[in-house]
Design a binder for these strands. Structure first.
Lengths: 207, 207
DNA sequence: TAGATTGTTAATCGATTAACAATC
DNA sequence: TAGATTGTTAATCGATTAACAATC
């Protein structure tokens, strides 16, 4: 089974969700074709950049015509779902973990929370938004899961991260402000709301 | 009142929360001095980069000695709090807004949720985690607030964004996947959890 | 065909890193 | 003083953009 990996650069990968999101909107509007010019305008990107990105991702724009919406969407979805990355677990049922478990919007984007874990014995057995809180010992039963959302105290983040990797997790959405050290086949993305508010503050104050 | 604005580049601003976070940790450990070498190692950054950043931000490292922790922290905090950006409002009491209102961790980082708004009349008057849900008409009473968290449906995001700007908001943390068009004195940061999960999926699938 | 749009090659830009000078 | 660490100048790298060629 040939794998046509063109090794997409990080900067391009980070724009793919934008494209996918816009393509979904076009599908809903039943738009068949889209030009890079239009796409660039609506997403606030450079049009050459869009063309380069789409060419790299899909490689089949037609001069004078543009790109087939469905075709682009299919190509992008193929990039995403080669392996099953729809099932996601949340580690930590504290403030953030709880808020995430309460949030019901994952399904809309084809992600599904299939487990919620905590190390606090007094929480285990309770449920948040129909997600029973499980002990970390049960992690091994979730070995098909590739993505974990990490929402534990910073002090234990690295050690729990190591446990996750040990049971086969390949990608971590890290809500802690602890920098995680992992092999480079493990992918990490960090979300820190307070950090983003801080950045906004600095930008506002810097005129 | 002289303003020693060195016009800090975006890439540097984005690292400042990392530094601040680490400095807080050092203060807690009662560490007085820190070298760029050490800082770089612990944060996973290049040491020349750290030196350049700190020099730009604080400009007072001492060869052979390093940087005074307290001094660095003070300099960074001065960047942040020239204007009052501690008070934050949340717009939208739907899935995400609710989850954010439930999340109690803002105070730890000196941010405080001072208002929660929604346009749905059936929600107004109710409370989430002791935050009463207010009508958007009441926005004008919050004119001292500079930062808003936007968590409304994508379709209304731009028009509500415009309203926010009209009442004096200078920075928006945008949880919608709508690209917001604003004057460039208004600062925007986007958070899209689904997009980050998608990026992780692609990276995992791309080997 | 002519014109609109894609695709590619070269130039530019910004950020990072390397090499080295300055200094406590 | 010698050595460790900061600060700066130049080189490198990657990503974006500009100019233009290819093509439906």
């Amino acid at each position: 089974m040939m794998n046509s990996n063109k090794n997409i650069p990080k900067s391009v990968i980070e724009r793919i969700p934008l494209y996918l999101n816009y393509l979904n909107y076009l599908v809903k509007k039943q738009t068949e074709m889209i030009s890079s010019t239009r796409l660039a305008m609506d997403l606030g990107l450079g049009e050459v950049q869009v063309r380069k990105d789409l060419n790299l991702i899909a490689g089949n724009g037609k001069p004078k015509i543009g790109y087939y919406v469905i075709d682009l969407k299919t190509k992008i979805e193929r990039l995403i779902s080669q392996y099953d990355t729809n099932d996601v677990i949340i580690i930590g049922a504290g403030k953030i973990g709880k808020a995430l478990a309460m949030y019901d919007g994952f399904e809309e984007n084809n992600f599904s929370i299939v487990g919620l874990f905590d190390s606090d014995p007094s929480l285990i057995g309770k449920s948040i938004n129909n997600h029973p809180i499980l002990s970390l010992d049960e992690l091994k039963k979730f070995s098909h899961v590739k993505i974990a959302i990490l929402a534990v105290p910073a002090e234990v983040a690295q050690s729990i991260c190591d446990q996750l990797v040990a049971v086969g997790i390949k990608g971590i959405l890290n809500f802690t402000n602890q920098k995680l050290i992992v092999n480079d086949d493990i992918k990490i993305r960090n979300i820190d709301i307070a950090a983003l508010l801080t950045i906004l503050s600095i930008e506002i104050n810097n005129n």
